[in-house]
Design a protein around this nucleic acid. Structure first.
Length: 489
RNA sequence: GGGCCGCUAGCUCAACUGGCAGAGCAGCUGACUCUUAAUCAGCCGGUUGGAGGUUCGAGUCCUCCGCGGCUCACCA
């Protein structure tokens, strides 16, 4: 134990010796810090004391200014900061203040006053220890700066950095605003399995675990899609789920292996209807929570004002890449053209993957303002419905904001025969070595064979949306406890 | 996985070309009854991420390892 901790332990013992529990089970609290501030600010000009009112407040000691026979403390509670003034001639047992350290939680009984400088303050008559902290909090002025510490020991980051606290408050508000938005439009929130026999609905490697009771492997879900569609088959016309999904992939500024996804499905809607719902949802939520629609993300100003731009993938490649996809309609010709242009291509890429490579290179980084990129090659979209005018394309969009994918939607494939054929094509890719290809899900096909009405669906990573709304460059700054490598030895 | 950068007191940071490891905050002692990054005086606090090596001498140079950041690759 280090010296600083030993000192604090000794202070706790001293309290116990005096018959005071340094960790009492209960306390009296009548007011929050913000309540006291309001009381004092309501005082008429010239008056410095709120007559006849006694308050009990509680919070963490975040500053201590000892003037000798008077000491100022700053207490932080869930509503904010409030100053406490302890004076030798108005506080019982003034000497005991030396037992209070920064980081301790204390309760204070006293009177709301205004100091000479106008600061709302509680002038204390009594104080009680509520929780003795055994470590010093991070440095009071600079806060906690070390990136690794801030992520590994988030409680210290939250304790020390107001901005971090606010960011995670915003996160909660965004999540609840999304729920309100959808609930108000008749969507039902449902919960589907995290542990699945096979993880489907997206192209990603799953985490695998083992269920002892059944003596079977299970996979953590990589998307919400296939179970939510089963809900639509069952007759739920508007469903959504917001929950954690898990992808066994690398870490990075935009990637965390567990992240929060929302997916929604609306029967009798198509991908156009869903695009309107989504742009309304995001701009409404931004306004409700943050009161604005303009954000600075990675040095670029982004406006979430509606309407958002819509452009087909073909048009976007023409506009940003001067690439006329009609002229390169086979994998071989497209590959030759892209290689001629100097792109580095995966050797096994099929037509869809090649289009995707071209998009990543020419188009996506340019889509800073919210943009729906529409009509994808069928090869990339095994769960989306084909366009009737061009069966090589599907009714699908991805929405890009700030240069990265923020969401994905289809008119859902509800033809069980086509769905089976698509799964079988995926199975061929898998056999050929694509370990992220979709698996044939017989129960899902059985569900579709019972009939899923025409349906539009949408999925979005909540964390990435929050990166934009809170103007953070790294997904780790919007996840409370991001994955980090463990420290051993 | 590759490249680059970083890791010094509980926290925030210094330390020229290899030459006694420092400051502020926090802590301890003292002064101060309206301060608010309080102030003032004094004191305590170090396996310089870890292990080796070069050297009379290593925070500094070399090798390996750990963790992190950025980036490339990978990842719709």
């Amino acid at each position: 134990m280090d010296e600083l901790m030993a000192q604090r332990v000794a202070k706790a013992e001293e309290l116990r010796a005096a018959g005071i529990d340094p960790y009492p089970p209960r306390l009296t609290r009548t007011h929050m810090a913000a309540d006291v501030t309001l009381l004092v600010e309501a005082l008429p000009e010239g008056e410095s004391e709120v007559e006849g009112i006694e308050v009990d407040i509680a919070g963490r000691v975040v500053a201590k200014r000892d003037m000798g026979k008077a000491t100022f403390l700053d207490l932080l509670d869930g509503s904010g900061r409030i100053q406490v003034l302890m004076r030798q001639n108005s506080l019982a047992n003034y000497d005991s203040l030396r037992l209070i350290d920064l980081g301790d939680f204390i309760g204070v009984n006293g009177t709301p006053i205004r100091t000479r400088t106008g600061q709302p303050t509680v002038q204390a008559a009594h104080w009680t220890m509520l929780t003795k902290a055994l470590h010093a909090p991070p440095e009071k002025y600079h806060g906690l700066a070390d990136v690794e510490l801030r992520q590994r020991k988030r409680y210290l980051d939250l304790m020390a950095n107001e901005e971090t606290r606010q960011r995670f408050i915003v996160r909660s508000k965004v999540v609840s605003a999304i729920r309100r938005f959808l609930d108000a439009r008749g969507f039902l929130e449902v919960e589907t399995p995290v542990l699945q026999e096979e993880a489907g609905g997206a192209a990603a490697r799953p985490f695998t675990t083992y269920y002892n009771a059944l003596e079977e492997e299970r996979h953590l879900r990589i998307s919400l899609e296939l179970y939510l569609k089963r809900m639509v088959v069952g007759g739920f016309e508007r469903v959504y789920e917001m929950g954690r999904i898990f992808r066994n992939e690398g870490l990075g500024a935009k990637y965390n292996p567990e992240f929060t996804m929302i997916e929604l499905y609306q029967a009798y809607a198509d991908y156009h209807d869903v695009s309107m719902l989504v742009e309304e949802m995001i701009s409404t939520v931004a306004h409700e929570v943050l009161g604005k629609s303009r954000f600075t993300f990675r040095g670029q100003e982004i406006s979430l004002e509606r309407p958002w731009r819509r452009i087909t993938l073909h048009d976007a490649l023409r506009e940003y890449g001067a690439l006329e996809l009609e002229e390169f309609s086979t994998a071989d010709t497209l590959r030759a053209e892209l290689e001629r242009r100097g792109l580095d291509l995966p050797p096994t890429a099929g037509y869809g993957k090649l289009v995707d490579e071209a998009m990543s290179h020419y188009v996506e980084p340019r889509l800073v303002q919210p943009t729906f990129l529409m009509d994808y090659p069928v090869e990339l979209s095994p769960l989306a419905k084909r366009r009737t005018d061009n069966p090589g394309l599907v009714e699908r969009w991805e929405v890009f904001i700030g240069g990265f994918e923020a969401g994905n939607a289809y008119t859902e494939l509800n033809d069980p025969v086509d769905q089976r054929a698509r799964f079988e094509e995926q199975a061929r890719l898998k056999a050929a070595g694509d370990d992220e290809a979709e698996l044939v899900d017989e129960d899902f096909l059985f569900a579709l064979e019972h009939g899923m009405p025409p349906t539009g669906g949408f999925g979005m990573g909540i964390d990435r949306l929050l990166m934009i709304l809170t103007e953070q460059d790294s997904i780790r700054d919007v996840i409370l406890f991001p994955q980090l490598k463990s420290v051993k030895g």
